[in-house]
Design a protein around this nucleic acid. Structure first.
Lengths: 243, 243
DNA sequence: CGGGGGTTTGAGTCCGTTCAAAATACGTGG
DNA sequence: CCACGTATTTTGAACGGACTCAAACCCCCG
């Protein structure tokens, strides 16, 4: 909120680092040119909203750098963090496709650069290149899977298990494991946001962390996490047995 | 399980009652012909599975009559009922689109007739008619919305509120309200399945029902529900205030 | 009738919440 | 670089809602 986000159009889709990870990877040169000229790049300081709940959807967003959190508010003030979007991810495409207003909102969790592609450009590209539509279709189908998995997870797994699961998901992107099974990890967000990802209160998050420390499952210092034996983490997953 | 489902191809897409409610409503006569010849109609007795969790997705399903429940199993035995599919609804399209195996399963909650359209036919139609893809896209986007709403609902609303909400949703399809605010409703499923829809145990469902009766919010007799004042139901929704 | 699943009930437990307060970290301006 | 004000995080105590386990009941269907 402190700094206004800055418009900047010097970014170039042709040289964008994330190009191969986006939906747009199959575009022809002509189409890329259209995309490049239709997009608008914007830098958002940490904490700034990319779009708000209830905003009309006037196009879609593409993350170039940083980290974006997609949040959803409850009628009675509850808030959860639905998912994270990273460089190459497309955001807000689903309100666009459903033809509805946004029903969640996106916020930069880190200083981030996000490109905006307005609706007419997207529509032109969709009409012009059917495979783009199929890529969106696949993306939507995958997100749907993930959302349904999340419903199941929240309603059947304990907070401990969900937290262990989250740490393991983070491992792939923000951490590493060495030969002896030690895992180190750099949390990409505050504890409050960790809580929002698990759909619990910050107090419960804090207690779960303390719990993991007391049981020597993991040690937490600021955003650094150290897990001496990754197997201990796997044991927290509520699996019936083997696997 | 008791009766084997029966193959029958006498059904005709051109005369299908649900035609205007399906994704297929924009097809040309030629395309309809292809669809009609590529589909396979099957009658499923109540309780029979349409497809199973983990099955490879070999096409998509379209409900002609009856009621289908889409369920999902947890690793540790938990089960939830994700959504209901009614005549005109397309099922299993999202595993098809994502190119994955089914990761949930569908079961007839009533004696139902379901058409199966094999993958090659769907793919041909998709290639041939881009607007079909867009309709699927829209459908997927709407389901995604619904799934995310459900995540929020489960994690922030009490069981009482979720049950009241469910009854109100059922009202539109299985019930009616008269001028004096009395609502009558015919539940489309067992209490066990109601519980699965709310992601709770049957015992908790039973207690919530008793609770509603003791507070004169609703009376339950078998699958008949009578709500003397629909406003009382609305009061159970956990809204901050007005609206 | 008899069997078997669905439903209800009870008692006890546990997990996560709520509310309140203290401690810690963080950014800003001096 | 330190001091200050604010937001985040931690902690405690008490509560409460949904779960577990177990038993009885009731239907429905064969």
């Amino acid at each position: 909120m402190k700094h206004q986000s800055k418009k900047s159009t010097q970014k170039n889709c042709f040289t964008c680092q994330t190009r191969n990870r986006t939906e747009w990877c199959g575009l022809s040169d002509d189409e890329m040119k259209l995309l490049n000229e239709g997009k608008m790049s914007r830098k958002h300081p940490s904490g700034e909203a990319i779009y708000h709940d209830g905003d009309p959807c006037t196009g879609i967003h593409c993350v170039e750098s940083g980290l974006i959190g997609v949040r959803k508010l409850d009628a009675s003030g509850g808030e959860i963090l639905l998912r994270l979007n990273e460089p190459g991810d497309t955001m807000g495409y689903h309100a666009f496709l459903a033809g509805t207003d946004h029903n969640n909102y996106a916020e930069a969790l880190d200083s981030s650069v996000v490109c905006f592609i307005d609706a007419p450009t997207v529509r032109t590209l969709l009409d012009h290149n059917p495979s783009l539509g199929l890529r969106f279709l696949r993306h939507a189908a995958e997100d749907l899977d993930a959302a349904e998995d999340k419903v199941l997870e929240i309603s059947t797994q304990s907070v401990r298990a969900r937290f262990a699961q989250l740490l393991l998901v983070f491992k792939d992107r923000y951490g590493s494991v060495n030969d002896s099974g030690e895992m180190t990890l750099d949390l990409p967000m505050t504890r409050r946001d960790l809580a929002a990802m698990l759909a619990i209160r910050p107090e419960s998050m804090s207690r779960t962390i303390r719990d993991f420390q007391e049981k020597d499952i993991a040690r937490f210092a600021k955003r650094q996490v150290f897990v001496p034996h990754i197997d201990n983490l796997l044991n927290e997953l509520e699996m019936p047995d083997g696997l």
